[in-house]
Write a protein that binds this DNA or RNA. Structure first.
Lengths: 194, 194
DNA sequence: GCCGTTCTGGACTGGTCTGTCAAGCACCGG
DNA sequence: CCGGTGCTTGACAGACCAGTCCAGAACGGC
């Protein structure tokens, strides 16, 4: 044992995540990262390897956090259907800054999934995580009779994930909360109706 | 008058578009562009100003082309509802390479809409273009009795656009054609039903 | 065929990028 | 309180970046 690190690894990853989330991978320089993380250059390279590794770690953290948040929100309501509704409307309810920041998961897919196999792999596991969460809640909704028994859980889960991603893109494109609510409302009719 | 340009402006924009589309804005170097366009450095700067201007022109061209293609496809079928279905299933029917390349419009929004006002502006006009096209076809479908009269054209149009963007993100994330078809199928139930 | 204009190609510039090196300093165990 | 581990800091290296400059070549008008 010798001198311990002066910073909290978890904390600096979190700060790096915020920068990558805001600006994307390519547009973020190491300088940006170091300033936000509040650590020296060498500390960053010693601790994380390089910019790409740091990004991957930040992305993993983002996925874990936002995945957990999704699952939490889906279980927050008494009614599964209402929980789904709240998740879809959630994007519309965010602050303009939040809507503009968008979703780091979506950004990573669009910017990097084609050229970085590890990002692609994280994208796939993230998809499975979210789909599974939605699938469970749809099943629950079916069990409670809130959606018709003919609804296919798997397909609907996939659809809901795609809808959230569509909402995120629309939000970044500058859609109004009203437009986002419209999208959520129509999406929900495919669950409610038969 | 003097010496005319040796290249076709339209053709080189098209080639630049392909590169930006494939790699994104930041990840594309001027070298990449010049190689693909087959012209000299100075020719590019004289003709287009700088990298950003060239990108904006390429993006505009992409929007015009893909917007026209959307409108065309929406009118290709006898039945408006089937046309919508064909558009949604279209993403699933693309080759793996096409699905991986994704949609330049979506990429521009995710990568640049926050920091470049002109990209944001193009994003908004693109949204209006697509929404209007979808709105028209939904109205047509209503007129023909293919969807219920209670369906709101505007909301549904917004929803359909969001669905296409969701499909594009999912496709880039590596979703199988089957998963994409699932998403399209569920999305369509919100039109067909009741 | 010649002149003026404009396009072309290559060399170049200043700046920024990611990643490394080396020197010194802070901490912990003994 | 001392030795050694390893963290920190600032300077640095090499590559690459967007964009400019310049000399020369190709073309149209006359």
């Amino acid at each position: 044992m010798a001198r311990p690190k002066e910073f909290d690894r978890d904390e600096v990853v979190k700060r790096a995540m915020a920068v990558f989330w805001e600006k994307g991978y390519e547009a973020t320089s190491t300088e940006d990262l170091l300033r936000a993380m509040g650590i020296g250059r060498q500390s960053m390279y010693d601790t994380f390897g390089d910019k790409r590794r740091l990004y991957l770690e930040a992305l993993q953290r983002y996925q874990a956090e936002s995945g957990a948040q999704l699952i939490e929100r889906l279980q927050a309501e008494e009614s599964p259907l209402q929980a789904i509704e709240q998740v879809l409307l959630g994007v519309a309810a965010e602050t303009p800054a939040e809507r503009a920041r968008g979703c780091m998961y979506v950004s990573s897919i669009v910017e990097l999934a084609q050229k970085d196999p590890e990002v692609a792999s994280l994208a796939k596991s993230g998809t499975i995580l979210c789909e599974t969460a939605f699938e469970r809640i749809v099943r629950e909704a079916k069990r409670k009779g809130e959606v018709d028994r003919s609804v296919d859980e798997r397909k609907t889960a996939r659809f809901l994930l795609a809808t959230v991603q569509g909402l995120r893109v629309m939000a970044k494109a500058g859609a109004t909360p009203e437009a986002l609510r419209d999208i959520a409302a129509v999406a929900l009719t495919s669950l409610k109706s038969r």
